[in-house]
Design a protein around this nucleic acid. Structure first.
Lengths: 229, 229
DNA sequence: CGCAGGTCTTACGGAACGCGAACGATTCAC
DNA sequence: GTGAATCGTTCGCGTTCCGTAAGACCTGCG
């Protein structure tokens, strides 16, 4: 997969998450590099920012279309419906407006790939200890017992499971899981609490989803039943 | 393949994309040229715009049907006027509403061709648990008992049966089952409700076709007769 | 021990969402 | 032409979820 975005932050967050999902991601930061890379690696999918230095994203898109039929997801700064229509008319396969959550991006990517290639997508089921999480079915279980998570809780849990033993600040979580660039950090706090309520044996003293004081949160599997994959 | 559209932009983008995919594409920009070309080159598939100068697309379609059984994909401008999509369902092999992504078009083209070639392979019957669904005969049964589904309900059910244990957003269903690029999402809601009315033991508390709050719908077979997978 | 900043808990209002029912419009069968 | 059937839409209602605010609690440090 080829990811084209001139904003290093967006590129880094998005690509790391896509990689964690199982995709092989190549990056490009401008139009020329994008065209060159598309030629070189022949990706099965291209995520393309509309606003690019040098050649405009749409122009890059047109040139791509001249020689290949690779699916393209278009990213744009402002999410107006007009842009969406324009993008679709130009032939983009899908469309996403910034800022977007990583979940949204992965969903679109999978949807497009599912349509173009078939059933296969790298992310099938996520397993970690006694936890099992199936994003496509949106089902989470602990030891076979289903956990009823809300959409946000599911996203948060999914992200943490994909990046275990790693500390994330509230800002980071807000950016990657929520897709916000700013916002009330207590939103994260509360959702972490609610998630704990559902996955921890004793939510009062968390073992899995722990607080790293002054830094953020971390998901770990310390428990005895650590038959990790 | 014959592509008929009076809009040069659409024709150019679509045809170049189809060619990049590997099809041999002939173009026509009005009804007469379309009929003439259809006669001359005997294409294996025709993509036909509904709105055409001179003879209307529908009229072209009827005349085509008089002398040949070439598969036809109809392009319609949604919302522009009273579209008789429902009535065309019987006649056209598929239809797509503008604006559409070119990839969507390619997918439909491939699907139609696959169908027209493998038309006589009787193993297109879909079975899942106690459900049995025969797309070619348009008959659905549950435990041998026939379910009287409408066209839309059948399409929806067919899609869900083909992709069990997977969540689909309303938007996704609208695009894949209805062939719309955008539209009223409550359309999906209502049809899901109607379908539930016919396949669920207790439609009030669905077991098979469940709602995933904030995400979409999912078809699952939890029931006892689960000899699947 | 007391303070300050960070974290947890609870509660609440608004918004989003899904559901049900019903209504025209249209089509098809007779 | 008439009536039944299908389909897409609309509206009101109840529910669920989410984000924020406010206070209590905890941790680290002087």
């Amino acid at each position: 997969m080829l990811l084209v975005d001139d904003d290093p932050t967006v590129a880094e967050v998005a690509s790391s998450y896509l990689r964690a999902t199982g995709f092989v991601v190549e990056e490009a930061s401008d139009g020329f590099a994008a065209l060159e890379a598309a030629e070189r690696i022949a990706p099965d999918l291209i995520v393309l920012d509309r606003m690019l230095p040098g050649i405009d994203g749409l122009e890059v898109f047109r040139r791509l279309r001249e020689r290949t039929s690779t699916p393209v997801i278009l990213l744009t700064a402002l999410g107006s419906e007009d842009d969406r229509i324009a993008g679709l008319e130009a032939g983009a396969d899908d469309y996403l407006s910034k800022p977007f959550s990583t979940r949204e991006l992965v969903l679109r990517v999978q949807s497009v790939l599912r349509r173009s290639i078939g059933e296969f997508t790298p992310e099938s089921v996520l397993e970690y200890g006694e936890f099992r999480l199936d994003p496509s079915a949106h089902v989470a279980t602990r030891g076979g017992v289903e956990l009823t998570l809300t959409a946000r809780e599911f996203d948060l849990f999914e992200f943490l499971l994909k990046h275990p033993n790693q500390v994330f600040s509230r800002e980071e979580l807000l950016r990657t899981v929520w897709g916000w660039t700013y916002g009330d950090l207590s939103t994260v706090t509360v959702h972490v609490r609610r998630l704990r309520e559902k996955i921890e044996r004793d939510p009062r003293s968390p073992v899995l989803l722990t607080t790293v004081w002054g830094v953020g949160y971390r998901f770990t599997m310390d428990g005895a039943a650590d038959a990790v994959v």
